[in-house]
Nucleic acid binder design. Structure first.
Length: 225
DNA sequence: CTCTAGATTATCT
DNA sequence: GATAATCTAGAGC
């Protein structure tokens, strides 16, 4: 896909390792931002001060009011207000009454958009994540399954509505860092977004879901290319 | 392996 | 009052 190639062609906005991504990183078309976020590190500082982190392996791009699958489809409301704000912030919302999902607000100036983070591969010591995901009465989960799926990302990293609006360029509670080079086109898979049939075929079938091809932490496989 | 039901509540119609 | 960018356990093949 041409968008994937365009992102791979440059390191645009990627700074040195272990430093939060700069605001400018998020200021580009959401599809490009979605792809650029693959491989980036998500870091969580727990209230007690310890850190957990992982690399993003699956995302979905959502647009503004024109996108019938987007939370912005009916304009600005109390819930989606963060989507209409500055780029580089976290839009956290609750779905199905129980799961919290993480989005990265982004897009070109004057547009509305966000990238849903669907899966993260934990890096480093996963103990803090396991404490929230593993069950005492069951064997430990594979690391790749701990934050596989948008609801599991929220559970694994302890996300809630209190983090809605958090600045992802500020290393306080949750933030993003570069983590190596952007993925190459051959390593990026794409397909329709998940769970948006209500938007109708024209919007539901757009290839706005992206992931690292064949990665064990994907929430589900991508359609064969 | 696939399929289905049930959980649970803020938000919008 | 209905819906939702989901997950899990349990039943059936």
């Amino acid at each position: 896909m041409t968008v994937i190639a365009a992102v791979a062609a440059s390191d645009a906005g990627r700074g040195p390792l272990s430093r939060p991504l700069a605001r400018a990183f998020f200021e580009r078309p959401v599809d490009e931002l979605a792809i650029a976020l693959l491989g980036c590190r998500f870091v969580r500082r727990w209230p007690e001060g310890t850190l957990s982190a992982g690399s993003i392996v699956e995302v979905e791009a959502y647009g503004g009011p024109e996108d019938r699958a987007s939370h912005a489809r009916s304009g600005r409301t109390a819930r989606n207000a963060t989507m209409f704000g500055p780029v580089g912030h976290a839009y956290v919302y609750r779905v199905y009454g129980l799961h919290h999902c993480l989005n990265v607000v982004g897009g070109e100036p004057g547009t509305v958009g966000a990238v849903l983070v669907r899966a993260i591969k934990p890096e480093g010591d996963p103990a803090a994540i396991r404490a929230r995901r593993d069950r005492p009465d069951r064997p430990p989960m594979a690391i790749a399954r701990l934050a596989s799926g948008p609801g599991n990302v929220g559970r694994a990293f302890g996300l809630d509505l209190g983090l809605d609006g958090a600045d992802l360029t500020d290393p306080v509670s949750i933030w993003l860092e570069a983590n190596g080079r952007p993925p190459t086109p051959a390593t990026v898979a794409h397909g329709p977004r998940i769970g948006v049939a209500y938007a109708g075929p024209a919007w539901a079938e757009l290839p706005r879901r992206f992931g690292l091809r064949g990665h064990a932490a994907l929430s589900r496989p991508f359609p064969a290319a």
